[in-house]
Amino acid sequence: MNLLGKDLFDVDSFEVEDFETIFETAKKFKSAGFTKKWSALKGKTVCTLFFESSTRTRISFEIAAKRLGADIVNFTASTSSLNKGESFKDTVKTLDAMGIDLYVIRHSEPGSPMMLKKYTDAIVINAGDGIRAHPTQAILDAFTMWEKFGKIKGLKVVIVGDILHSRVAKSNAKLLNMMGAEVIFAGPNTLIPAQAERYGIKVSYDVKKAVKNADIVMGLRMQLERQSNGFFSSLDEYNEFYGITPKLMELAKRDSIFMHPGPMNRGVEVIEAVSDSESSKVEEQVTNGVFTRMAILYHMLGGLSE
């Protein structure tokens, strides 16, 4: 495996062995702890290019890059820069002229990381493009599962809620399928994307049935505006049928975990009794986000051996 110089557009940019290597590296970084500073990426410049607002992903990348000794600059536009009269192309070309080694891009439009690549020779990491993909989230999620269960193969993962608009669910489905987990998308029919089974996963409209014997129950952010667009009728009904409650979690395996990519809409897709319970790995995911992103940056940007 050699990830040096590769781009990460989605999880299928890499091979299964690559993820195993990333996990091992992340584990090493994690065991060294938050206080340890590295100089592997000294002299490299990482640019976070965020066309869509995000706090946790941007900060997670920033901390990861800084821990490895890279310089990091942030470009943030609250909306697509197109609306401000400057095209995506011009924005990228301007930044590129300043010598960037690696871009971390977040954009509301699918395919934007590939579009970025047309204008730059720098390495590109997709940090979320519209409703398409969010590979680093899927990698940190898989790492969290791997850390807890020691493997991915054979795990039963149920992803609950608004799959249609979730780039996290889609990248997770791809990666977990690659690594041999059993994945179920569970949610209302209106929020399951067309022909989702072709990810190699199962679809269920009955969350209770789906969660039976699950190792992992993953919630997704449900945006309330989906209601006015007719994707569900009332929050009350949604909660009753698809909400993640302690009662639902009881149907899963005894040592099962709850995961959520955040930000959570407490009381919408999940209630506090679950998200703040012992089985909840939500904060662990955030911590792991830093270490897996360190591992990803380290391998992609040519970490010097120490």
């Binding site: 699918p110 889609k170 067309a194 989702a196």
Partner: peptide
Amino acid sequence: REGWFSTLYGIYAMP
């Protein structure tokens, strides 16, 4: 067009 590829490409699609 809505279908497997619209899901895969993350593009809003019409049936």
